[in-house]
Computed example of a mutant assay.
Amino acid sequence: MDFNFTDEQSMVRDSLTRLVRETYDYETRNGVIASESGWRPEIWAQLAELGLLGMPFSEEDGGFGGGAIDSMIVMEEFGKGLVVEPYVPTVVCAGGFLKHAGTAAQKEEHIGGIVDGSQIFAFAYAEPRGRYDFADLETTAKKSGDSYVLNGHKAVVIGAPWATHLVVTARTSGGQRDKGGISVFIVDKSADGVVTRDYPTVDGRRASEVYFENVSVPADALIGEEDGGLPLIELVTDEAIAAQCAEVCGAMKVAHALTIDYAKQRKQFGVPIASFQVLQHRMVDMFTEYEQSVSMTYLATLRLGDDENARKQAVSAAKVRIGQAAHLIGQEAIQIHGGMGMTDEMAIGHYFKRLTIFDSEFGNVDHHMKRHIALSS
C-alpha cells in the first residue's frame, strides 16, 4: 500500500509546520492559555485564510475536496505545538454531522461559516452521569408545535467558551439508556435559556458546563433522522477519535525529542544521563511506542470509510494502543526529566498533561477495549 502523501498534502504539512513553529512557541502558548480569552481569534482567521478549515469538505459544499487524511495531517502538526484552537469540535465534529446528515439548507447556512471562520462550534454530548455511553442521556428535546424544547446539562464541552453554535445530543423518545430515541440538534449558543459556566482544562484548553433551560429550537435545527441519531453520533465521534490520535502522535513526537535533548544536557556523576544504558532503553521504548501509534493512526484513518463494524474495530484498536502509548511516553518523559518536568517552566509538563487527558476523551482505554472485544466476538 502506498503511504506517501500527495504534493498538495505535503505542502499543507510544510505550511502548518512553519505556522506552528512561528506562532506556537512555548512562551507564546503559555501566555495565550493564561490570558482571559484562552485562545487567539487571529490564529483561527489565519487557519481560515490558509484553507485549513474548509479542507475536509467537498467542493459542492464550499470546501476544498479533502477528507480524513487531510484532517490527520492538520491534527498531527497541531499536536506538536499543543494548539488549543477548536479544530476538532468545529471542523471534524460539527462539520462531520453536516457532511453526513445535514440538509441542503443546513449546509448552506453553516458550512460556509465554518470555512471562513465566522462560525465556531462545540459538541455538547457528555453528561455528568453518562460516562462514555452516548445513549445515556438525561437531556431531552420535546416536540412543541413546529419546535423542540431542550432541557438538560452537558458537561466538559470543549471549546464552548469560544463557540457561536452548539451541536447537542438529546433524547426525543424512549428510556434514559435506550439506543433509539436519540436526536442531534444545532443550537445557537446565544439562544434564550442557554447558560454556560466556563473554565480552563488541565491541558490548557477551555470548556464549559452548558445548561439548557426550556431552550426552543426550530424543527429545521434537527440534524439527520429524529430518534435515529446514535449511528450518526458514533460515526462522527470515530472520525474525531482518529483526528485526536493524529494530534497525540504529534505531541508524542515532541515529548520524545524533548526528553532526548534533556538527557543529553542533564549530567550525573559528571556525564550526561543519556549515556546511561537503562535510560537509553527507556527512550527507545518511547520511540517504538510512537512509531506503532503512527501506524495505528493511519489504519484507523483509512478504515473510516469502511463498513460500520470494521470502522469501529479499527478506531477502538487505535484508541486503546495510542492511549497506552501516550501513558507510557508521558510517564517516561516525566521520570527522565525528574521533578522539574512537572513545573510550568518546562514544556514537557504541558505535553504530559495533553497525553494524559487524551485517554478520557470519547472513551478511555478500558471502554474501547470492551468495544473492540464485543465487535470481534
Rank of each mutant, 00 (worst) to 15 (best):
G338F: 07
L230V: 11
L222R: 00
G323L: 08
S275C: 04
Q335T: 12
A310S: 15
I334F: 03
Q324W: 04
V248E: 01
A243V: 11
V248H: 02
K264I: 02
S216D: 12
I329P: 07
I233W: 10
G228R: 10
R303K: 08
D220M: 00
G224V: 14
G229F: 03
A300Y: 00
L232S: 13
A326D: 00
V248P: 00
F287N: 13
G323Q: 08
D306K: 11
V215Y: 05
I357G: 00
A240L: 12
Y262M: 05
A242W: 04
Q265R: 14
A251Y: 00
E345K: 04
D307L: 02
F276A: 12
A240F: 07
Y298N: 03
P218C: 07
M342E: 06
L235Q: 12
D227L: 02
E234L: 05
M252T: 03
M342Y: 13
S216P: 08
L299K: 11
A300I: 05
V254G: 09
L304G: 02
R354G: 03
I273Y: 09
G338E: 13
K267V: 15
P272K: 09
K253A: 11
R321K: 13
M286I: 06
K267A: 15
F352N: 14
K264W: 10
G330H: 09
H350N: 15
N214Y: 04
H327E: 11
T301I: 03
E234G: 02
T343E: 13
G339W: 10
V236F: 01
H281Q: 10
L222M: 04
M346E: 14
A257V: 07
G323D: 09
A242K: 03
E239C: 14
V278Q: 12
Y290Q: 09
E247C: 02
Y262C: 07
K353H: 05
A317L: 07
P218I: 02
I329T: 09
P272H: 09
A333F: 10
Q331S: 14
A317M: 04
D238R: 08
M286Y: 11
E332I: 13
Q313G: 02
A240Y: 07
Q335A: 10
A347W: 01
V248L: 12
D261S: 09
I357P: 00
M286K: 01
V294W: 01
G224E: 06
A317R: 07
Q292A: 04
A257Q: 14
Q313A: 12
I233L: 14
N309D: 14
K267H: 08
R321V: 01
R354H: 08
R303C: 13
F276N: 04
R311D: 14
E332Q: 06
